[in-house]
Simulated scan of single mutants.
Amino acid sequence: MRNISDIIEQYLKSILHESPEGMVEIQRNDLADEFSCVPSQINYVISTRFTLEKGYLVESKRGGGGYVRIQRIELPAHSALHNHLHHSIGDEIGQTAAEGLIYQLEEARFLSKREAGLMRAAVSREIILVKLPYRDQIRARMLKAMLISLLGK
Rank of each mutant, 00 (worst) to 15 (best):
V58L: 08
L31E: 01
H82A: 15
I42A: 06
C37P: 08
I26S: 09
K113A: 08
G66F: 00
I42T: 04
S36G: 14
V58A: 06
R69G: 10
Q27I: 03
H17D: 13
I93E: 02
A97G: 02
V58M: 06
R109L: 14
F110P: 02
T48A: 12
N83Q: 14
Y103E: 05
A116G: 04
L57P: 15
I42F: 05
E115M: 05
R120I: 04
Y67F: 04
L81H: 09
Y67I: 00
C37T: 12
E25C: 12
V123W: 01
S79A: 15
Q95E: 12
M23W: 12
L101T: 05
I93T: 03
L111M: 07
M119H: 10
V68S: 02
H82N: 15
R28E: 09
L105W: 05
N83G: 13
L118I: 08
Q27G: 06
V24D: 07
V58D: 06
E92H: 08
M23A: 14
S19F: 04
A121L: 15
E106C: 10
E74I: 11
D30V: 13
G66R: 00
L52V: 14
G90P: 03
I42L: 05
D91L: 13
Q71M: 12
I89Y: 05
L85G: 05
A97F: 02
S88V: 05
E107P: 11
E25F: 11
N29H: 14
E92Y: 07
Y67C: 00
I93Y: 03
G63H: 03
E106H: 11
V68I: 11
T51V: 07
V24F: 09
G100M: 10
L105E: 04
E21V: 07
A116N: 06
L52P: 13
E106L: 11
E25I: 14
V68P: 01
G66N: 00
R49A: 01
R114P: 07
L101M: 08
G63F: 01
I46N: 02
E74M: 12
A121R: 15
Y103T: 08
N29I: 13
L85C: 05
E34D: 00
L85H: 04
R28H: 09
E25D: 11
R62K: 09
G65F: 01
G65A: 04
S36P: 09
A80F: 10
S19C: 04
T48Y: 13
Y44D: 03
A98E: 01
L118C: 06
V24Y: 09
I93V: 08
E99H: 09
I102F: 07
S124I: 11
S112V: 11
I46Y: 02
V68N: 02
I102V: 09
K113P: 02
E53N: 15
I89N: 03
Q95C: 10
A77K: 15
G100K: 10
T96I: 10
N43Q: 14
I70E: 07
F35I: 01
K54P: 09
V123Q: 00
Q27D: 04
K54R: 14
R49L: 00
A108Q: 12
S112K: 11
H82C: 14
I102K: 05
A77Q: 14
R62A: 02
Q41K: 13
V123L: 01
I42K: 07
Y44V: 03
H87C: 14
Y56R: 08
N29R: 15
T96A: 11
